[in-house]
C-alpha cells in the first residue's frame, strides 16, 4: 500500500519538534504493526467458524438429504479458505501510531478504517486475552472513550508490550485529561 509508505516518510517531519509525549519514553512516532503471531489467532478463529458452519451444513445435507446444503458447505469452505489466505495481509494492515497528542489506529484492506483518539479522551484502557492469544503470549488492548463509536481495539500485542503500552497511555491520559 503506497499511502503507508508516504505516511511513514512524512511522519518524522510533521511531528519532529514535539518533545512531550511518547518520544520522551523512547518511542518514535511511526506506524507500528501488531505481532505476526496474531495471524495464528485469526486463522484459528476462522477455522473454528468454518468447521462449525460447514459441519452444520453437512449435518443438514446428510440427515435431511438437502442438496443445497452441500453446495452451501462447499461455498462456506472455499470462502473461509480464501479469507484465511488473506489473513497475513489483513493482520499486516493492522497498524497503530502514537503521535504527540493522539493515537491513530488503522486496519482493513477492503474496508479501511482509520481512527484518531486523543490521549485525553481515553476513559479506560482494557486488556483482554482469549485462549489462543494467551497460549501465544498475546493480548488485545481496547481503548474506551465516552463515545461508543470509537471502538478502537489493537489486537495481537505481546503481553509485556501491551502492559507497557497500557501504563503509558493511562499516564498520558492522566496528564491530558480533558473532561468529557
Amino acid at each position: 500500500m503506497p499511502e503507508h509508505d508516504a505516511a511513514e516518510h512524512a511522519a518524522p517531519t510533521e511531528h519532529d519538534g514535539i518533545a512531550a509525549g511518547p518520544a520522551e519514553t523512547g518511542r518514535s512516532d511511526e506506524w507500528r504493526r501488531v505481532s505476526p503471531k496474531y495471524i495464528v489467532v485469526e486463522v484459528v478463529g476462522s477455522l473454528i467458524g468454518m468447521v462449525v458452519f460447514v459441519g452444520a451444513a453437512l449435518v443438514v445435507h446428510f440427515l435431511w438429504h438437502q442438496q443445497w446444503a452441500l453446495w452451501a458447505a462447499v461455498a462456506i469452505g472455499v470462502l473461509s479458505l480464501i479469507g484465511i489466505a488473506f489473513e497475513p495481509r489483513r493482520v499486516r494492515s493492522i497498524q497503530y501510531r502514537l503521535r504527540a497528542d493522539d493515537l491513530v489506529f488503522r486496519r482493513g484492506i477492503m474496508f479501511q478504517r482509520q481512527v484518531a483518539v486523543p490521549y485525553g479522551r481515553m476513559q479506560l484502557v482494557d486488556i483482554t486475552r482469549g485462549p489462543v492469544a494467551r497460549a501465544l503470549g498475546l493480548a488485545d488492548l481496547k481503548f474506551v472513550t465516552a463515545a461508543a463509536a470509537t471502538a478502537v481495539t489493537v489486537p495481537g500485542l505481546p503481553m509485556e508490550e501491551a502492559d507497557r503500552l497500557r501504563d503509558e497511555l493511562v499516564a498520558l491520559a492522566e496528564t491530558r485529561r480533558a473532561g468529557l
Partner: peptide, 16 residues
C-alpha cells in the same frame, strides 16, 4: 471540537 471524542475515516471498496 473541544468535545469530540475521536474521528474516523473509512474507505470501502466503492469509495476507493
Amino acid at each position: 471540537l473541544a468535545r469530540m471524542q475521536s474521528v474516523a475515516i473509512s474507505v470501502g471498496p466503492i469509495d476507493r
